[in-house]
Simulated scan of single mutants.
Amino acid sequence: MLEPLALFQRWTELSGAAWAGALAARCHALIHDSEERFTRALDLHKLAEQPYEQARTHLAYGEWLRRRRRKAEARPHLRHAQEAFERLGGRPWADRAAAELSAAGEAALTRRRAAPAPG
């Protein structure tokens, strides 16, 4: 029996679906610690309208870059992820991106509405 990623990779190749290729590339990037796979995933995301999955790839790549002390390169990916998750209503993911952005040396966006002032 094929391992799950190998099976998904095979299905992706047969289907030719860009969104599936992006997910497979992200999985390979995480498993094999591969920057080339992250950039391949981001290229494939441009061919398919999957904003949630694209944001997850930006977040994973931004985290990967930050952990390699490449903070300046990580920030645009983390910013993209936070903004996308905010738009999509993915609060836990937006919070995670904000924490990573802060760790990369940038104040994260805060879109939460403040409580109205008593008055």
Rank of each mutant, 00 (worst) to 15 (best):
A108T: 02
E83N: 11
E86I: 05
T12E: 12
C27M: 12
A22F: 04
K71A: 13
W93H: 10
S15K: 13
E13A: 11
H32Y: 08
A99D: 12
A108K: 06
L30Q: 15
A97M: 10
R75I: 11
A84S: 15
L5E: 08
H32D: 15
R37T: 00
L78C: 06
A22R: 05
A41P: 04
A108C: 04
E73K: 12
A84C: 04
L23D: 05
A41K: 03
A114H: 11
A103V: 07
R96P: 02
Q9V: 01
A74G: 09
P51Y: 07
D33K: 12
A99F: 01
W93S: 10
G119R: 11
L47H: 10
F8T: 04
R112F: 01
R111Y: 08
E3A: 07
E13N: 06
M1R: 10
G16F: 07
F38W: 14
L109I: 01
E53R: 09
E100W: 12
R96V: 01
H77F: 04
P92I: 02
G16P: 10
A17E: 13
Q54D: 12
I31D: 09
R26S: 09
A117L: 13
E73N: 04
P116L: 14
L59S: 02
R40F: 00
G119K: 05
R37W: 02
A18N: 09
A107W: 00
H28L: 14
G62V: 05
G62A: 11
A84P: 02
R79Q: 15
T57Q: 06
A94M: 10
E63D: 14
G21W: 07
R67A: 05
L23N: 13
H28G: 02
Q50P: 00
T39A: 09
A29C: 06
E73M: 08
R26D: 04
A94Y: 07
A103N: 11
H58P: 03
R66H: 11
R79K: 14
A55I: 04
E36K: 10
A107C: 00
S15V: 01
G119Q: 06
A81D: 10
T39Q: 15
L78I: 03
Q50L: 09
L101S: 08
H77W: 07
K46R: 15
